[in-house]
Design a protein around this nucleic acid. Structure first.
Lengths: 212, 212
DNA sequence: ACCTGAACACCGTTCAAGT
DNA sequence: ACCTGAACACCGTTCAAGT
C-alpha cells in the first residue's frame, strides 16, 4: 500500500534513476555520467530510462532539479538567519552560494555549466531554478526597503550580486583562482572580501564627495 | 622553402587540425566537436591527430589558445583606448569581455566552461590564459595608482571585477538572464549598469558618512 | 617520420518483441 | 504498462602495418 506507485520491479524507477544518476554524477563527474551506466546502477536495461525520460537531457534536468531546490533553500536559510541586517544577508548568501558550489562542484556544473538545454527542462525544474534568483532578488529588495541599498533598479542590483557570486564560484571551481585562494578558508575569506567590495564599491567615496 | 615545416601531405597538419576544430566548434558546438570529425574535415584519417596531440583534450586546449590570445588582446585594446580614465577602462574592459563572450559563446565555453583540464594545457596556453587576468589586474592597479580606486589588495579588487564580468557573461550566455536582457543592446546596457554598481557600490554612501 | 585501417570498449537512441 | 535485446550510427584510443 505505502506508495501508490508500485511498479514492475521498482517501487519507482523514475526516482531510482535520478538517485543513481546523482550518485554517478558525484562520483565520476558530469562527463562520465552516461544513461547506460545510470540504468545499470539502477538495475534495469539501458533502454528502460526511456519509459520515464524523453532523452538523456531530461534525466540530467531531473537530477539538477534537486540541486536547484537545495540551493534555493540554503540561500533562504542564510537570509533568514540575519533578517535584520541586509548587508550581512547578502554576504552570507554569497558565502553560502560559493560554498555549496564548490562542495558540490559536479552538481553546480550540471546546474549552471551550460550543459542543460532550457528547452529540456520541465516546468517544475524551471520553477525551482527561478526560486534561486528570486531569493537573491528579495534580499536586495529588502535592503532597499530598509534604506540600506541605493535606489537603482532592483533587478540591476540583483544581477550584479548574482553575477559576482556566480562568477566567483565558477572561477574557483574551474581552478582559475588557484593562486589567489586554495583552502576552503581562504576561499571563504576572499568571497567575503569580494562581496564587501561590491557593496562598498571600488571607487573612493571621497571622489564622489568632490564631484557631487 | 617558405615555412620550414613542410610535412607529409599537409604543410602543417597540426595547424590544419586546430583550424578545422575551431570551425566545427563554432558551427556545431562544443558537444558535437569530435576528434574524428575534425580529422575528417582536415582530410586525414581519424588516428592522424594522435601524431600531433596526446589526446582530444590537448587538441581542445590548442583550439582555446587562440581564444585566450584574442581576449587578452581585446581587453588590452579596450584599456589603451582610454588610458587616462580608469573607471572607463574598467567599464570598457567589462563590455568587451561580455561582448566577446556572447559573440563567441562556444569558444568562451571551451575556454572557461570547465571543459579543459588545467593539466592538459601546454605552457603556452597557460601563459595566454594568464595574460587575460593580468590585463584586468593592471587596469585596477593603474586606477589605484591614479588614486581613483580604494587602497585594498589589488588582487581582491581584480578578482571582484573579474568575477562580476565573468559571471555576467556566463549568466547571459547560458540564458539565465533572458528576462532581464535579450538584445545585444540591452545586454551591453545592463553590463554597463552592473559594472557601475560594482564601482560605486550597492550600499548608500550616506550610510557610511553616518558611520564614519 | 607520418599516416592508415582494423579493432576495442564505450556512447545515445530506436524498435520489434516479450510479459 | 513496463521492460528487454539486438541493431545502428556514432565516440576516443590503441596498435600493428604500410610508405
Amino acid at each position: 500500500m505505502a506508495q501508490p506507485k508500485e511498479k514492475y520491479h521498482h517501487g519507482n524507477l523514475r526516482q531510482a534513476l535520478i538517485n543513481a544518476g546523482q550518485q554517478l554524477l558525484i562520483e565520476k563527474g558530469i562527463h562520465c555520467l552516461s544513461l547506460r551506466e545510470t540504468a545499470k546502477a539502477a538495475g534495469v536495461s539501458h533502454t528502460a530510462p526511456y519509459r520515464h525520460f524523453k532523452d538523456k537531457d531530461m534525466l540530467l534536468a531531473a537530477i539538477a532539479e534537486s540541486g536547484f531546490e537545495q540551493l534555493a533553500e540554503a540561500l533562504q536559510n542564510a537570509a533568514e538567519s540575519c533578517a535584520d541586517d541586509p548587508e550581512k544577508q547578502l554576504t552570507e548568501a554569497a558565502v553560502t552560494y560559493v560554498k555549496l558550489a564548490i562542495t558540490h562542484i559536479e552538481m553546480h556544473q550540471l546546474m549552471f555549466g551550460n550543459i542543460l538545454n532550457e528547452d529540456s527542462m520541465s516546468e517544475s525544474v524551471l520553477e525551482k531554478k527561478q526560486r534561486v534568483f528570486d531569493t537573491l532578488f528579495k534580499i536586495i529588495e529588502n535592503g532597499q526597503k530598509q534604506n540600506i541599498y541605493i535606489e537603482a533598479e532592483t533587478l540591476e542590483l540583483a544581477v550584479a550580486a548574482w553575477s559576482l557570486m556566480h562568477g566567483y564560484a565558477l572561477l574557483i571551481s574551474s581552478g582559475q583562482l588557484r593562486e589567489a585562494a586554495t583552502s576552503l578558508m581562504q576561499i571563504e575569506t576572499l568571497a567575503r572580501a569580494v562581496t564587501t567590495h561590491l557593496m562598498v564599491g571600488l571607487v573612493k567615496s571621497e571622489k564622489f564627495a568632490e564631484e557631487v
